[in-house]
Simulated scan of single mutants.
Amino acid sequence: MLSLSAVAGSFPFPTKYIPLSLNVKITLGAAVDADSGQTRDASPTNGWFAPQRPPRSSGGSPVSPLPLSPSHSVVWWDGQQVYIRDLDSPFGTYVNDVKIKTTKALKTNDMIRLGSSISRNSNTPGDITDEQLKPIIAKVTLAGISSS
Score class of each variant (00 low, 15 high):
1 M>V: 06
4 L>F: 03
6 A>W: 06
7 V>S: 02
7 V>Y: 00
8 A>S: 13
11 F>V: 01
11 F>P: 04
13 F>P: 01
14 P>D: 08
15 T>R: 08
16 K>M: 10
16 K>S: 06
19 P>I: 05
20 L>T: 00
20 L>V: 01
21 S>I: 11
22 L>I: 15
25 K>F: 05
29 G>P: 02
30 A>C: 13
31 A>K: 01
33 D>F: 06
34 A>Q: 12
35 D>Q: 10
38 Q>W: 02
44 P>I: 01
46 N>P: 03
47 G>C: 08
47 G>F: 03
47 G>L: 00
48 W>R: 02
49 F>I: 07
54 P>C: 09
56 R>K: 10
60 G>Q: 04
65 P>T: 05
68 L>Q: 05
72 H>A: 07
74 V>E: 03
77 W>L: 10
77 W>Q: 02
79 G>N: 06
79 G>V: 09
81 Q>L: 13
83 Y>A: 13
85 R>C: 11
85 R>F: 05
86 D>H: 14
88 D>V: 14
89 S>Q: 10
90 P>T: 14
90 P>S: 14
90 P>V: 13
94 Y>G: 03
96 N>P: 03
96 N>Y: 03
99 K>S: 06
99 K>H: 08
101 K>N: 14
102 T>Q: 11
104 K>R: 11
106 L>P: 01
111 M>Y: 05
112 I>T: 02
116 S>T: 15
116 S>H: 10
117 S>A: 12
117 S>I: 07
118 I>S: 09
119 S>L: 15
123 N>P: 00
123 N>Y: 15
127 D>I: 02
128 I>T: 14
130 D>L: 05
132 Q>D: 04
132 Q>W: 05
134 K>M: 11
134 K>V: 10
135 P>D: 05
137 I>P: 01
142 L>M: 10
143 A>S: 14
143 A>R: 15
145 I>M: 11
147 S>T: 15
